[in-house]
Design a protein around this nucleic acid. Structure first.
Length: 484
RNA sequence: GCCAGGAUAGUCUAGUCGGCGAGGCGACGGCCUGCAGAGCCGUUUUACAUGGGUUCAAGUCCCAUUCCUGGCUCCA
């Protein structure tokens, strides 16, 4: 039974999509005025993992993620760099895919851009005006939050208790808005800015309206999951709810609101304003992509994660344990053939069977509990430890166990977006594997004949190509050296 | 001020619709080893912010308090 924590109710709830077997899922994507940072990566990886798990549970997931390609930040940055806004967008949308691909973040079913749905947004705004939820002041259209009685329910406040004794709100410029929490649906054109024609004159959409419009256009007026970072709860998601429900008259707009926690750098929030952000691009120069994904997925998605060298080091050590297991399982056949002329096939042992069942059960229990990837990983780690522990004694395992253990780790690994190169080796990978296997066989013989000169030469040469060899008592394993 | 989340051994991270004390890292010791690297084992056990309360039983539930983080303003 899958349970998810819903920001709207602040409780874990049983997950039951509106339509059987189909999950309609929308995740807020980046504003494409800069490279994505590892905070984005965390959000994207969290929801990518959630998507993968839902698919594992048998749901068809319709996953939509937007690109915000028009807003103040876009306009300002374009001006600074002296390029057109759409050129800026092109550049960083391309960069988005370049950066997310190595992290095994799958593409959404739809990746709409705000500027591609301007007519749809205008339609939505029109209806809001007609229904009296919005007002027009000289070509600027605002949403009237006082007309929508549940305003604040996601963020945990009501307009009534909107008292701010400690300063923050005094700074807010209310301007022509009727209420300080009212927000722009449409902004009148300013000189030199991109603009579109509308019934209220030239202008451009406000920030929040694009997500509502896209949700409704691609998924419908009621969707199952809407995700994003915790910083989007207010005002962005709150405003989305208000305008969507006001538009359609159907509640709830979103059944489950899911929000991921922040990435902290040395215990401080990573943010653009603090300037302590690390782009995915820079991180990938320093760390292998799988290590990054592993690190980000090893913490529950709602908890804060502290990103520093120490954490990376710990993650690396743990990941190495997985690699050792996987390489062992993969090379098991070679190892066995080297050691024994003829194969000994033993039936799977009770202990092995029980362990596999337990791991599978634990993994699913963990993931069913609000996608607790941390515990899911601990379950897999238990299997890894069992294998690594008994590895030195090669005849310990039954062949059936080897196959099943390998499949289990790879299948579950795929849900976490890990170990995909083991599961889906390319033709090239397979050839390399065959070649290395031959070399390992030769080296094995050389070592048996105490011809260490040859054995070491092979080891050195293989290392130059990018593989290290680990010798155990009766056998050796080759491992790919991770590249950044 | 309001809202949300948190405080678990040297450190990081689980567990939180109650029922004998979790795991990783680090440290120390050992085993294995032609070399190298790695691996394995053991030790590091009055761990749950504080004070009350409920209970046969509380890290877990209730009340109060302290401190931390985030949001209330563009931000994943």
């Amino acid at each position: 039974m899958l349970k998810v924590y819903n920001t709207l109710t602040k409780k874990k709830e049983k997950f039951k999509p509106i339509e059987d077997k189909i999950v309609k899922m929308y995740v807020c994507g980046p504003t494409v005025y800069d490279y994505c940072h590892i905070g984005h990566a965390r959000s994207l990886i969290s929801f990518d993992t959630i998507r993968r798990y839902l698919e594992f549970k048998g749901y068809k997931v319709i996953y939509v993620q937007n690109f915000t390609d028009i807003d103040d930040k876009m306009i300002n940055r374009a001006k600074e760099e002296n390029v057109a806004v759409h050129e800026l967008a092109e550049k960083f949308i391309d960069a988005y895919f370049e950066d997310t691909h190595p992290l095994n973040i799958r593409k959404a079913v739809y990746h709409p851009r705000a500027t591609a749905i301007i007519p749809d947004m205008i339609d939505v705004i029109n209806v809001l005006l007609e229904k009296g939820y919005a007002y027009n002041i000289d070509g600027n259209i605002y949403f009237d939050t006082t007309k929508y009685d549940e305003y604040g329910k996601l963020a945990g406040f009501t307009l009534k208790d909107d008292n701010y004794s400690k300063g923050t709100m005094c700074k807010i410029y209310i301007g022509e808005k009727r209420h300080k929490k009212d927000f722009a649906l449409w902004k009148k054109k300013k000189e030199g800015e991109p603009s579109w024609k509308s019934p209220w004159g030239e202008g451009r959409p406000g920030w929040h309206i694009e997500c509502s419009t896209m949700c409704m256009k691609y998924l419908g007026e009621n969707i199952d999951i809407h995700g994003g970072g915790q910083d989007l709860i207010f005002p962005h998601h709150q405003n989305e709810i208000a305008q969507s429900e006001a538009y359609s008259g159907k509640k709830p707009f979103v059944k489950y609101w899911l929000h991921n926690g922040f990435v902290n750098i040395d215990s401080e929030k990573m943010s653009k304003s603090l300037g302590n952000f690390i782009t995915i691009r820079d991180a990938l120069k320093k760390y292998p992509p799988e290590l990054l994904r592993f690190l980000l997925v090893s913490v529950h998605y709602r908890n804060p994660i502290n990103f520093n060298e120490d954490q990376v080091r710990v993650a690396k050590r743990t990941l190495d344990k997985f690699y050792l297991t996987l390489d062992f399982l993969n090379q098991y056949q070679n190892i066995i053939t080297n050691i024994n002329d003829k194969e000994i096939v033993l039936p799977i042992k009770k202990e092995e069977k029980e362990l596999l069942d337990k791991i599978e059960k634990d993994f699913i229990i963990a993931m069913d509990n609000d996608f607790n990837t941390h515990n899911a990983m601990i379950a897999l780690l238990e299997l890894v430890k069992f294998i690594n522990k008994n590895m030195a004694n090669i005849t310990f395992f039954s062949k059936e166990f080897i196959g099943k253990a390998n499949k289990l780790i790879l299948d579950f690994g795929e849900i976490l977006g890990l170990f995909l190169t083991y599961k889906y080796p390319t033709k090239e990978d397979k050839k390399i594997f065959e070649l290395l296997s031959i070399l390992m066989e030769i080296r094995y013989q050389a070592r048996n004949e105490k011809n260490y000169k040859l054995a070491d030469k092979i080891r050195d040469k293989i290392k130059e190509i990018g593989f290290i060899i680990k010798d155990f008592k009766n056998f050796s394993i080759f491992q790919k050296i991770l590249e950044n």
